[in-house]
Nucleic acid binder design. Structure first.
Lengths: 229, 229
DNA sequence: TTTCAACTGTCAATAAAACGACAATCTTTT
DNA sequence: AAAAGATTGTCGTTTTATTGACAGTTGAAA
């Protein structure tokens, strides 16, 4: 491994993997790194979407709020991932609200400068195309889930995704840092807090998962998979 | 207006508006025009997605089916619009199923040839970018609707979209050709046929819309808008 | 013209999940 | 350490929408 460059913070982004140091250098010039504390907003709905973001460290959630104040979570962002990339596709305003769930380190690049950088580095085009394709796929899957699955199936699907994205396998158990409260899971799966609680409790009684306020363990992913067919 | 070219069929696609005749010519060379009859499938799920489609005339619906046979409609395609464009973003298989709802005329272009054409005509890049952005927006709006709105609000939202996309204003009435059966509306709005019927009937009783088997008229769009806030 | 299949309209029964309420527990602040 | 606030757990109760069943219509096919 090469010596630690001052651009260390760009190296780990999936999107930039394998770029040579010259290009990372020029990327470094147009990017700004910023710390966010827990619960600090990153951008708001109706703001002009003029930047694209990369999460280096921490955790971010993207939400939408209905007229009457109900919240839904559009997505969670893990380290190494891009967010706010709609700015790349669209001139308009943001439609979602981004907030740091934990102390986070976030890299910001101005939309126009990023577009210019991409046009000078065509290898990125393909990656971005794939990224966008993946987003569309995720959204259509989410729609499908809302249409075809009932509340407990949606919650179980979510647990599986959580295990895959954020879990650490230890023997036959998968440990997940429980960074979401029940209300968050409810906002992610389009059901009520009480329903989330009862589904989780039920799974715990059946020894398929275990959880309390400080841990979440999936004992038996196989069985969970059976529930959602 | 210029004399009718043999490329008349390409002229009206939103995506190609304003391309000069030389470019249309070369587009003509890589595109194939084909007639589809009512209920004829255009592509299936799990097929490799090797082409992109443009609807010249008729009407197409894009659907997904759950494991247990329930259907949802992912979207309706109107003349002048693209579909199957995921092939442009993704190497994989189709995830949806496209079927002609009416006798239709459809232009097909091979994904790779289309990509080549786009790379030689950079003005298209921006339009495609916008198109993709719009798709993402539509999907997130759909998710939002499923999460925040109840069945009758979803049906009413759908009626408004239908009026906007397919309606002809005549005085204060908006006429829509009723090309959808109740089951289709149900598949579009994620509720049951019976619920669709009862919501529509209720709106008819209140004289906000009128419909029977051969027509659908929206008398009072204002009031519909009030229902959905 | 008759027949058949698909679609519409309606209703009662059932099921799913939201909602409201409140106690218990944990966390943070003072 | 006490108080306040947030989160979880557990209830009945109520709402919403699905389901199934069946009769009435309509359009197409024979």
């Amino acid at each position: 491994m090469a010596e630690k460059s001052k651009l260390w913070y760009l190296e780990n982004f999936n999107l930039f993997k394998g770029l040579n140091s010259e290009k990372l250098e020029s990327l470094g010039k147009i990017s700004k790194m910023k710390d966010f504390e827990k619960n600090q907003p990153i951008y708001f709905a109706h703001e002009p979407s003029s930047s694209i973001f990369f999460l280096k460290k921490g955790r971010v959630k993207l939400t939408r709020t209905s007229n009457d104040g109900k919240e839904m979570i559009l997505g969670l962002v893990n380290p190494g991932e891009v967010f706010g990339e709609m700015s790349f596709l669209d001139e308009g305003e943001r439609t979602d609200f981004a907030i740091a769930m934990e102390p986070s380190l976030i890299c910001t690049i101005n939309k126009e400068e990023f577009k210019k950088f991409v046009s000078e580095n065509n290898e990125l085009n393909l990656r971005i195309t794939k990224l966008i394709g993946l987003r569309i796929k995720k959204y259509t899957e989410r729609i499908e889930e809302l249409v075809f699955k009932d509340a407990s199936q949606r919650i179980i699907s979510f647990l599986i995704r959580l295990a895959d994205d954020n879990g650490k396998q230890l023997g036959s158990d998968i440990f997940v840092k429980p960074f979401l409260k029940h209300q968050d899971i409810a906002d992610l799966t389009a059901c009520s807090r009480q329903t989330v609680n009862s589904v989780l409790t039920d799974l715990r009684e059946k020894k398929i998962i275990h959880f309390d306020r400080r841990k979440l363990i999936i004992h038996d992913k196989e069985t969970l998979l059976k529930y959602i067919g």
